[in-house]
Simulated scan of single mutants.
Amino acid sequence: MAETTTQQRPLMGWDKPELDLTNAQWQSSSRGVGDVQIAFVEGFIAMRNSGRPESPSLIFTPDEWGAFVSGAREGEFDLT
């Protein structure tokens, strides 16, 4: 039986560095509500699920973060 291997390739347009988040200073919301934490690392914003900190973090550029926060404030991600 032939062995198959899966090679991971970077996502198209993915121009973000591999960040070391080992010593990141994770912050929760000021209200202490929710499962999201963010950290500012090397000019990027990392976001993770505080309930599963070992899972992958999302990495945003400052412009992407601004668009995400604006969309959230405007209800773009609200369940209807």
Rank of each mutant, 00 (worst) to 15 (best):
M1L: 00
M1Y: 00
M1C: 00
M1P: 04
E3V: 10
T5C: 02
T6N: 00
T6Y: 04
Q7L: 10
Q8W: 08
Q8D: 12
P10E: 07
P10V: 05
P10F: 02
M12R: 14
G13F: 15
G13Y: 14
W14A: 12
W14M: 13
W14H: 14
D15T: 14
P17I: 00
P17Y: 01
P17R: 05
D20Q: 05
D20A: 09
L21V: 02
L21M: 00
T22F: 04
T22D: 12
N23A: 05
N23C: 00
A24D: 12
Q25L: 13
Q25K: 15
W26K: 05
W26Y: 03
W26R: 12
Q27K: 10
Q27V: 06
S29F: 10
S30N: 14
R31C: 00
R31H: 02
R31L: 04
R31Q: 06
G32R: 11
G32Q: 08
V33T: 15
G34E: 13
D35R: 09
V36K: 10
V36A: 13
Q37D: 05
Q37L: 01
I38L: 13
A39W: 00
A39I: 00
F40D: 13
F40G: 08
F40K: 09
F40R: 12
V41H: 07
V41S: 07
E42W: 00
E42N: 11
E42A: 07
G43K: 03
F44V: 07
F44T: 08
A46R: 05
A46G: 03
A46L: 03
M47G: 01
R48T: 13
N49S: 11
G51F: 02
G51H: 07
G51D: 05
G51T: 01
R52V: 09
R52N: 13
E54C: 08
S55P: 09
S55K: 13
S55H: 14
S55G: 13
P56N: 06
P56Q: 03
P56K: 04
I59K: 07
D63P: 02
D63N: 04
D63T: 09
W65S: 02
W65F: 10
G66I: 04
F68H: 14
F68W: 11
V69E: 05
V69A: 06
S70W: 00
G71Y: 02
R73N: 07
R73M: 09
E74S: 09
E74M: 02
G75S: 03
G75F: 00
F77N: 03
D78W: 01
D78R: 10
D78V: 01
L79K: 04
